[in-house]
Amino acid sequence: MIMQTPRSETVQGSWEHFPHQADIGVRGIGPTKGAAFEQAGLALTAVITEPASVAPMEAVSMTCEAPDDELLLVDWLNALVYEMATRRMLFSRFTIRFSDHSLHATAWGEPIEITRHQPAVEVKGATYTELSVKQDGQGRWIAQCVVDV
């Protein structure tokens, strides 16, 4: 069930949240797997704050490795959770490149400002619940999972 009209729809795709009783699901949709992963990153930011309020000023690079696409999505979101927590930053723009079982990402964002960003909740981690990375009948890539908050 989709609870939210995507707030951001571009040629690169869209994101949305889906419900989980205690927590929240993030879903990225895009013409490529990379675009779907990037949109899932935006959906993650939107759990915390309005992505449009986050200026893409500083770049942070990340690399993840996992045996399959689904575990790679969880790793990617957990890498973002880690960078947000340790740098005390929020991110609003992403680029992703894949090679073999690896993902190389750059995330742009800015240090968190409580008054302006009004962060609702911190994400503890991405989970394997409702986890999937697949193409739908129209060829769109969909990357999703529930995140624990």
Binding site: P67, L71, N78, V81, Y82, A85, K124, G125, Y128, D148
Partner: peptide, 17 residues
């Protein structure tokens, strides 16, 4: 806090694999 979250994340993956 963050320590528990990170331990959960890392061991979930190593136990799955």
């Amino acid at each position: 806090r963050g320590l528990g979250h990170q331990i959960g994340t890392e061991f979930l993956k190593s136990m799955v694999t």
